[in-house]
Design a protein around this nucleic acid. Structure first.
Lengths: 348, 348
DNA sequence: CTGAAAGCGCTTACAG
DNA sequence: CTGAAAGCGCTTACAG
């Protein structure tokens, strides 16, 4: 075995220039397709580039051009394991895929709402633009948004519900309100009248929109809002226990709308453990439609989120913005798809 | 509303120097704690830094020091949605968390095995070290590893099974072989004799180790290896269909070992759909122990993977290596934990 | 204790 | 069509 070598001194543009018997700037011109260079010289340079395995130093280009070819992503969430929610990972994947295709990199940072003010860690990110997905109370999130705004970078806010005050900022979300409406309408049509909604304590604006959608639909039917069952976190155990406690305290509802699939599934298991039949005694629906929505018996009724697409769109908005100089819109809303399963009754 | 402003010309070290009436290098010394500077001058400089909101340019430091404070992560997998597997996202999260705490950034790139040779995209990553998690056939993976080796960067290979030929490279994995053994032992003790194992077509070295562990344990009991049921991908639908087809063709086994939880759950649902009782007719176990292992009825017997820790350790190995100049070991194996559920029988 | 000079590897006007 | 010079914002020897 050879000794672990230190990183070889990289081939620079000067090396290429010397070998090709031209100046560094001619090499640069050829590589960037700028300026006119005779085809003969260009070919010679390209051959040398190939032979030497020259790769331009991004560090040098970044310094020179003060462009980073990097997007920063901030995930503000209480859970240290900030990629544990599939709704978030799907967005991250969509974004990474889009950016990679466009030769951009993504730097992801998870921050807890409480650490946001102090850490300032996110400020260390040198990027051309930012994407943020925020949880927390309205004032907390607004404070985050202002902080991000101080970076003076084009910004995409994922899942925020209202257009932002900040300049150079666009809000991108899925239509959670409509999703909530569709779920409620479906349940109403199957005869449900007493509704619960399971919601995590961590405040997600999308979650609130789902609740608002359900509430609006009930109100339109002359019914009161759903009873909100809060879960101190989004874990299975907590949602399960919260459902049991609520069943104990208030008796069974006609329908439980889970704020997401995980919550709905935990609720379903709790109901079944108490001897209720789903959907005959209690109907249950979820939100998001990730892989495991069908792990349970009966298969969960849910709303399919375009989460991956949300990530891609965020990347697209940002890269277009970087080219054009301004965002084309200040708000963009993607549709969701209601997906009936067997945890709710078919309506006749 | 103000006009969207272009990124303000950033405050540079020169601005600070001018304001504090010292040279740029004195500012640099103070900020980096190098050289001796009178406490009075230092305090003055720090005040100016604060007042001006000066943040050193990473791009300049990178160029100057040819260090990137960045780790690159390569995920070589067929699925375009390369963060869809929770086993991978948990590792990515662990790594990101560790790196962020140490002021490093992570650049993640998903590449399909087939594109690996051509894309060369991963070479664009300017990083101080690499982490890779590879799927594909042995020769394919070895080719990837050699390619990565040509970057001459300290490298952590996740879930590879054998120490690498490459210099400056360490293999970090969990003990999938032992996990396979434990599952098999448990099933043997409950009386199972006829085994299937559900495996995705994409070749993961960890998956092979699980199979090898099961096989070894069966062999020790004088039994033949498990029947391998291949799934063309890791999706629910495919695993479900594969299980149905196998039941059709060969009748029911005593036990089905899922290569991971997702496969096990799909298999369980397929068995139940055919009227088999789990665990009375067929015992079923999974692998990894992510949140949804208990979504199913009966709750899945599984093996808990230290996936988040795997990511953290990868970061730790790399950052230590960067400081010390060499890896302390060439292989590191983390233990797994057998987690009995109700999809297998309790042994007496 | 403090600073002038050089240089990391590029690219952008500007000449020729 | 091609090149010499300057500079992006830092830090590292080396002087004083």
């Amino acid at each position: 075995m050879t000794q672990p070598r230190r990183h070889d001194r990289a081939v620079t543009i000067k090396d290429v220039a010397r070998e090709a018997d031209v100046s560094a700037m001619t090499v640069s011109n050829v590589l960037n397709g700028r300026g006119r260079v005779s085809e003969e010289t260009a070919a010679r340079i390209r051959a040398v580039v190939e032979r030497l395995g020259y790769r331009p130093s991004m560090a040098a280009r970044r310094l020179r051009l003060s462009r980073q070819w990097t997007i920063g992503m901030l995930i503000v969430v209480e859970d240290r394991d900030f990629l544990s929610d599939p709704f978030i990972t799907a967005q991250v994947t969509g974004l990474t895929n889009y950016l990679t295709q466009n030769a951009y990199s993504l730097i992801v940072r998870g921050i807890r709402p409480s650490d946001f003010r102090t850490s300032g860690l996110f400020q260390q990110i040198e990027a051309d633009g930012m994407v943020a997905i925020l949880s927390g109370s309205e004032p907390q999130r607004q404070a985050c948004i202002r902080q991000i705004g101080r970076m003076r970078l084009p910004t995409v806010l994922l899942q925020e519900q209202a257009a932002s005050q900040e300049p150079d900022c666009v809000v991108l979300r899925q239509d959670d309100f409509a999703g909530g409406q569709q779920v409620a309408r479906h349940l109403l049509e199957t005869g449900a009248r007493g509704f619960w909604m399971l919601i995590p304590q961590a405040e997600w604006p999308g979650m609130k929109a789902r609740l608002a959608g359900v509430t609006a639909e009930l109100q339109a039917a002359g019914l009161p809002p759903p009873t909100v069952v809060q879960c101190s976190d989004e874990s299975y155990d907590v949602a399960y226990a919260a459902t049991l406690a609520a069943l104990e305290e208030r008796g069974a509802p006609d329908a439980i709308v889970g704020g997401n699939d995980q919550l709905a599934i935990a609720a379903m298991k709790a109901c079944q453990a108490r001897g209720f039949s789903v959907p005959d005694d209690i109907q249950i629906s979820g939100f998001n439609g990730f892989a495991f929505w069908r792990y349970v018996e009966p298969v969960l009724t849910t709303v399919i989120s375009p989460a991956h697409l949300l990530g891609e769109r965020a990347g697209e908005l940002l890269i277009d913005r970087l080219q054009v100089g301004a965002f084309a819109a200040s708000e963009l809303v993607l549709p969701v798809t209601f997906q009936p399963g067997r945890s709710t009754r078919a309506h006749t």
